[in-house]
Amino acid sequence: MNIVALCAHRARYMVSKALSGRSPRVSRPTAASSRIALRIAPRIGIVLAAVIGYFGVRGLTDSSQAKALRNAAHVEAAERVLHLDWEPQLQSLVVNDQAITRLLNWIYIYGHWPVIALILIWLLSRHPALFSRAAGAMLLSGSAGLIAFAAFPVAPPRLAALGMTDTVTEQSSAYRVLQPSAFTNQYAAMPSLHVGWNLLMTLAILAATRKIWLRVLAVALTMSMDATVVLTANHYVLDALAGVVLAELGWYAMGRLQNRARRQQRTTTRDTNHPAPSVFVLTGQRG
């Protein structure tokens, strides 16, 4: 049978199947896709549990105003000693420009959770190892942050007697849609996880790609949030620095854990592929 006849026979067969009214065969999921789903599902579950726990515990640790204001005064005193008490002066440069404050509000609101969610989805689909490292670093730094919020509540500059304007609350209501007041601790200023977690996304992107435009956007992501949390009177400079340190420690710790796991896996694979010689080989005897 030549190629023309073979094609004609195949075409007649397909037409007859279509006219017979039989439902097309639905392919079953392959073993590979099932393995991928089983590997991804726990990771997504861990991230969702961490986010729910973060909001829930953060809301439950809302401490008294008097204690938070006293701790804020301690932070302000430390900044004066370190010559970092820049918050009122910096905000005075932009607070009267409505276009700039609107941009800062958008960065604070939409440049955090929505951006983090998109980056985590991208990492999960393209770079699962980096997803695990970033998510694990978020979990570690978030746990440490919750302990700090409960043990050392700090009122943000917008609630302290610094004469600063709460631009996010006064000019926008979208923030309370993304973070309802029931799950928000207004005295959780130290450390700034807004800064820390954006930095983790930046580190993950820098490790994942060599594309210049993506790397520039990654750096802009963290630099813009660093400036925004201070200019909107939501965090002190020391809060931002503490968030950076906490995120870096979480990123480093997860990297060490992943490297150790890879070394153990290579050792196990090598031992499996090259088992130890039997006693007969060592003694030169036959079995």
Rank of each mutant, 00 (worst) to 15 (best):
A78F: 11
L103E: 07
A160K: 03
S33E: 06
A32L: 03
P114W: 09
M14Y: 14
Y13M: 04
T268I: 15
F152A: 03
R28T: 04
P29N: 14
N234I: 08
V281G: 07
F152Q: 03
V115R: 06
F131M: 03
P180V: 04
L104K: 14
D226R: 10
V47Q: 10
L162G: 01
T167Q: 03
Y110E: 01
I205W: 14
G136S: 04
V279R: 13
G45C: 09
A276L: 12
A5Q: 12
A129D: 15
R39A: 05
R102H: 13
V244Y: 12
F280I: 01
A160D: 02
S181G: 05
A50Q: 08
S172Q: 09
A155K: 07
W251F: 07
L162E: 06
L203W: 11
E87V: 15
A253P: 06
D97Y: 11
A77W: 10
T101Q: 13
Y54M: 00
A188H: 02
I116V: 13
G136H: 09
A135T: 05
A32Q: 06
P88V: 03
E87Y: 12
N273F: 10
L146S: 06
T232N: 06
I147V: 15
A49G: 12
Y108T: 11
V57C: 07
I119D: 00
P153N: 15
S33W: 10
N273T: 13
Q264M: 08
R43H: 08
E170G: 11
S224F: 13
A72T: 11
G196M: 04
L221D: 13
T30S: 14
I46C: 06
V47N: 01
I205T: 08
A144F: 15
I44E: 09
P24L: 05
T184E: 02
R158H: 04
W86A: 13
L19E: 11
R70Q: 13
L82N: 12
P191T: 02
L231R: 05
T269Q: 07
N259A: 08
N96A: 01
A261G: 04
T268K: 15
Q179T: 15
R215M: 05
H274T: 12
I205C: 06
I109P: 02
L48K: 09
A247D: 00
T101P: 04
I109W: 09
W106D: 08
W251G: 01
A134W: 08
I147S: 00
